[in-house]
């Protein structure tokens, strides 16, 4: 059952881009301010690896190697985000999945009943042909909850650094 609060569950979509770390910082700050629960997810795009293997660009052993490495990357990102949250005294949930990125992210919104999805800005110069662009755009367009795309990463970084130097009251008014 969903809460009657405006934001009670924030889902953070971590895609391994630089922007997702700023999105994580924003999510942590927003979670502290609103008291909402924060969960970070990372999806290893095994669908793309399989497509590349089917197109014969990868041989099987590459697909297996890259899946293992991308999974490790994902765990590292989630660990880093957990540390960012803990640095601010916040405990968060994390989950790593494998498969179709947008399908799993959208399913997570449903299953976890998120009422806000936070994601990073697309990296400058990304293309429509770019898989990141496709996946992020599909998530953005098809999400059943509100979506917040974090921009102005420099400002977010500055605010995040000052968060734990302020009392809760000044933090609330400062953001």
């Amino acid at each position: 059952m969903q809460s009657d609060r405006l934001i009670s569950k924030i889902l953070l979509f971590a895609d391994g881009s630089e922007g997702c770390i700023s999105a994580a910082k924003y999510g942590v700050a927003l979670s502290i301010i609103t008291g909402a629960v924060l969960k970070a997810i990372y999806v290893v795009n095994t669908d793309l690896l399989k497509q590349l293997e089917r197109a014969r660009i990868f041989v099987k052993v590459e697909e297996i190697d890259y899946e293992r490495d991308l999974e490790e990357d994902g765990h590292n990102y989630l660990h880093h985000i957990t540390e960012l949250a803990e640095h601010q005294g916040l405990t968060i949930e994390t989950d790593l999945f494998k498969g179709s990125v947008h399908k799993i992210a959208l399913q997570q919104i449903e299953d976890w009943q998120a009422d806000l999805l936070i994601m990073g800005e697309l990296e400058p110069g990304s293309l429509r042909q770019d898989t990141f662009h496709d996946e992020n755009e599909l998530i953005f367009r098809k999400a059943r909850c509100s979506v917040l795309v974090v921009k102005d990463t420099e400002r977010i970084d500055q605010i995040f650094e000052t968060l734990n130097h302020q009392s809760p009251t000044t933090t609330r008014s400062g953001i």
């Binding site: 660009i57 990868f58 490495d69 293309l127 042909q129 770019d130």
Partner: peptide, 18 residues
């Protein structure tokens, strides 16, 4: 390089798509 596996996979996909 091994540090950029995710981008590497994306570039391969981009070449294939073009």
């Amino acid at each position: 390089s091994e540090a950029v596996t995710s981008n590497y996979v994306q570039v391969l996909a981009l070449i294939a798509r073009l």
